[in-house]
Amino acid sequence: MAHRIPLPAWAQDPTILDLSRAPGRDPGSNERLGQPRRSEIRGHRLRLQDDDVTTLDGTRVTTPARTWLDLCSIRGLSFDDLIAAGEYLVSEHERTFHPRTAIVQLADLRSYIESRHRVVGLGRARIALELLAVGVDSPPESYLRQMLERAGLPKFIPNCPVTDPWGGTIWIDLGNVEFRTGVEYEGEHHFTEEQMALDAWRDTRTRAARWNQVKITKHDMARGESYVVQRVVEALRDHGYRR
């Protein structure tokens, strides 16, 4: 996909090109134009406006905002998938390690969606849009955040800054300030020797700041939502949360 929007593995096929053609008739024959058809092409017929299209490396493509809207029309994609894709586009933060600039500002994405009418997927886009959070760094973090939201837990802030006793800033993947509890998603890169050393220093600083920390891996996620939520609930309870 031109904009590198993350999707589930089943929805990604680099050998297939999505190609759209505007509805209408061939001016030469006056015959109705069909969808583009070739073995490596998935054809569509879309009525696009000027602000739906941009140029990328010399090729006309749909804008990131329009691409996300079109993804919302794919029934195989869950709301969790659509939110993860949307949070990739709107993510921005100023953490000292790998700061990010939004591909689309959340306010701009909201304005764009509000300006569309009679587009397939628009209803799902409006719902997903209200569930987006700014600052999420990866799809697994997005899925994890959504688990905690669905469980009705206190709000967790993506890329939450915490000040350690030495005046430095620790950036926590998902942090709840009220109960001083952080949740870290530990991807594969966390198991390299260098990253493990960095994480150990981060953990020391987090404990010194009197924050609880829950580390979640893909294996934890595979055990299911209730398991992940219960681990976070236990950490929250250590700092006074009751439910």
Rank of each mutant, 00 (worst) to 15 (best):
R95Y: 08
R100W: 05
G76I: 00
D80S: 07
P99M: 09
L77H: 07
A102S: 14
L82V: 12
V90N: 07
T67M: 02
E114Q: 13
T101P: 00
V90E: 11
S78N: 03
T96E: 14
R75H: 14
Q105V: 02
A102Y: 00
R110M: 09
L82K: 14
L109R: 00
D108C: 05
D81H: 07
R95Q: 13
R75I: 10
Y88G: 11
R100V: 12
P99S: 10
I103W: 10
L106I: 14
L77Q: 03
I113P: 12
R100Y: 05
P99D: 08
T67D: 03
D108M: 06
Q105H: 12
L69V: 03
A102T: 11
H93F: 01
L71A: 11
E87L: 05
R95W: 11
L106N: 02
L82A: 14
E114R: 13
S78D: 06
Y88C: 15
Y112W: 05
A84W: 09
D81S: 08
E94W: 06
I103K: 13
C72K: 00
L106G: 02
E92S: 15
D81N: 12
Y112E: 12
T101K: 14
Q105S: 12
L82P: 04
E87Q: 14
P99H: 06
T96F: 06
A85Q: 04
Q105Y: 02
T96M: 01
D81G: 06
E92G: 13
F97S: 04
G86F: 03
I113S: 05
L71I: 10
D108W: 06
V90G: 02
E92N: 13
G86T: 05
I103V: 15
L106K: 04
E94C: 02
D70S: 05
S78V: 02
F97W: 15
T101Q: 13
L77K: 09
S111T: 13
I113K: 07
V104P: 03
I113T: 11
Y112N: 05
L71S: 08
F97D: 11
E94M: 03
S73Y: 03
L109G: 01
S91N: 13
S91R: 15
L109S: 02
E92H: 14
F79A: 07
W68P: 12
T67V: 07
E87M: 08
E94R: 15
D80N: 09
I83D: 03
D80L: 00
Y112A: 10
L82W: 09
T101L: 06
W68L: 03
I113L: 09
E114P: 08
F79M: 15
R110E: 15
E87K: 07
E87A: 03
A84K: 08
A107L: 05
G76F: 01
V90Q: 10
D70L: 12
S73C: 06
V90H: 06
G86E: 01
R75M: 10
H98P: 00
S78I: 02
Q105F: 04
H93C: 01
W68K: 01
W68A: 00
G76R: 04
L106T: 03
A107V: 12
R75A: 15
D108L: 08
V104R: 01
D70G: 10
Y112P: 10
V104G: 02
L77A: 07
T96P: 02
I103F: 07
I83F: 07
L69W: 11
Y88V: 12
F97G: 00
G76H: 01
R100A: 14
D108N: 13
D80Y: 03
E92F: 00
D70Y: 08
A85F: 11
L106H: 12
F79E: 15
I74W: 10
A107G: 08
